[in-house]
Amino acid sequence: MGAGAEHKLVFVDRLPATLVHLRHGASHDVLACWFSVDRSTITRAIGAVRPLPAARHRLSRHRKTHRDHRRDRGPGAPPGRRA
C-alpha cells in the first residue's frame, strides 16, 4: 500500500549499523552479513539515519537557554547588570 518497500531493519537496528559504519568503518557488505539483510538495505539504512544527528545539532543551535541570555549582557558587563 505504501510508496516503497517495507524496511527490513527497524530503527533500533539501523542506528547501530550506522554508528558501527561511521565509527569503525565497517563495510556495507560486513554489516549486511551481521544483520542478515541485503547490502542495499544497509546502504538505505545508513542514508536514512546519517543526517539525523546533523539535523538535531542544527535545531539545538537555534534554541537559547537561560544561560545564553545571561551571556548577551555584553562584554565586560559586571555580573547582574545589563549592558
Rank of each mutant, 00 (worst) to 15 (best):
L31P: 08
L19E: 07
D68P: 06
H21Q: 06
D29T: 11
R82K: 10
G47F: 11
V37R: 11
P78T: 07
A5V: 11
S36P: 00
L31Y: 01
S60N: 02
L15V: 15
P53D: 10
G80A: 03
H69Q: 11
H66Q: 11
R81T: 14
D38N: 15
I46Y: 05
A54G: 15
H7I: 07
V49N: 03
H62P: 03
H7L: 08
H24D: 11
C33G: 04
L9R: 14
R67F: 08
S60C: 04
G47A: 14
P75T: 08
H62G: 10
V37A: 04
D38Q: 15
G74N: 02
R50E: 12
F11Y: 07
S36E: 07
I46N: 02
H24S: 11
H24Y: 13
V20E: 15
R73T: 05
H21W: 01
R70A: 08
L15A: 14
L9T: 11
R81P: 00
T41V: 15
H62D: 05
P79H: 08
R58G: 05
R23V: 10
R73I: 00
A54I: 13
V37E: 01
D72A: 12
V20Q: 12
R14V: 01
R58N: 08
R73G: 07
S60I: 03
A83P: 14
V10Y: 04
A77H: 06
P78D: 10
G2A: 08
F35Y: 13
D13T: 03
G2R: 13
H24W: 12
P16C: 02
L31F: 10
P16K: 03
R67E: 12
C33L: 09
F35T: 00
D13M: 08
H69N: 07
G76V: 03
K8R: 15
G74P: 01
A45K: 06
S27F: 06
E6P: 14
K64M: 13
M1K: 04
S60Y: 06
V30T: 15
P16L: 03
P51V: 01
P53I: 05
V30M: 09
A26I: 11
W34F: 07
I42P: 09
G80N: 11
T41I: 12
R61T: 03
H69D: 12
P16I: 02
R58I: 04
L22P: 01
D29C: 03
H7P: 11
D72P: 03
R63C: 02
G2I: 01
A45T: 09
V30A: 14
G25R: 08
V49M: 10
L52D: 02
T18C: 13
P79F: 02
F11D: 04
T18H: 06
A3I: 04
R63I: 08
P79E: 12
H57S: 04
H28E: 09
P75W: 11
L31C: 12
M1F: 06
V12W: 05
R81G: 02
R58V: 02
D68T: 04
H57L: 04
F35I: 00
C33A: 09
L59D: 06
I46H: 08
A77W: 01
A17E: 02
R70K: 02
A17V: 05
G4R: 15
A45S: 13
S27E: 01
H66L: 13
G74A: 00
R73Y: 03
M1H: 03
F11V: 08
W34N: 13
R73S: 06
